[in-house]
Amino acid sequence: MSRLEIYSPEGLRLDGRRWNELRRFECSINTHSHAADGSSYLEQGNNKVITLVKGPQEPSSRSQVDTAKALLRISVNITKFSKTERSKTSHKNERRVLEMQTALVRTFNKNVMLNVYPRTLINIEVHVLQQDGGIMGSLINGITLALIDAGIAMYDYISGVSVGLYDTTPLLDTNSLEENAMSTVTLGVVGKTEKLSLLLVEDKIPLDRLENVLAIGIAGTHRIRDLMDKELRKRAEKRVANALSR
């Protein structure tokens, strides 16, 4: 791995991006209108994620009833074929996946206005069809879109991205090759603020460099928020125009 030139002296990365460039970002909402209340399909580079939001709905068991607010549940399904090499085991009960689910639930618990939907259950399913680094950020973006599509009230967007640190240069939106070669930081940022809802650092990073990494990460998430916002507005305008013409 170390033989790959992660960041060339000319300032180009493995896939030809510069340090501050995001990967291709495409998203669409309402992709599974019959299966769920809100749905989204997101491609961030080679990450491909389908998100389905079901609810707010009647909880299936009494233990899930909270008289004050809705219960949010997220299940992440990482398919066996999501990487180049087919994984032999299902990822269902891996600690890593459980940790991701917990982190996602805690992120959205504070951002969705759960108190508006007492005694209900909001069930979110995420299917990872393909992964290529920075998957946590893509999951956050997909869930945000699907929640908005479902018409569920939330305070603001949450957008996620991961940033690597190569020597002294932060590299925005890392792919899996870069992720394996250096330490990465994953952020989840609320709207256009500088407030971090999620911050995960999994490898060693000099304390004094962390600030730079966060700065470019926040800028990246703001950009992703705008891209998601653009797509949502496009859809909304279409619908409104549709409704007016009829």
Binding site: R106, T107, F108, N109, K110, T193, L200, V201
Partner: peptide, 8 residues
């Protein structure tokens, strides 16, 4: 570093 959600 682990800030798994919670208060922004």
């Amino acid at each position: 570093v682990s800030k798994a959600g919670g208060l922004p």
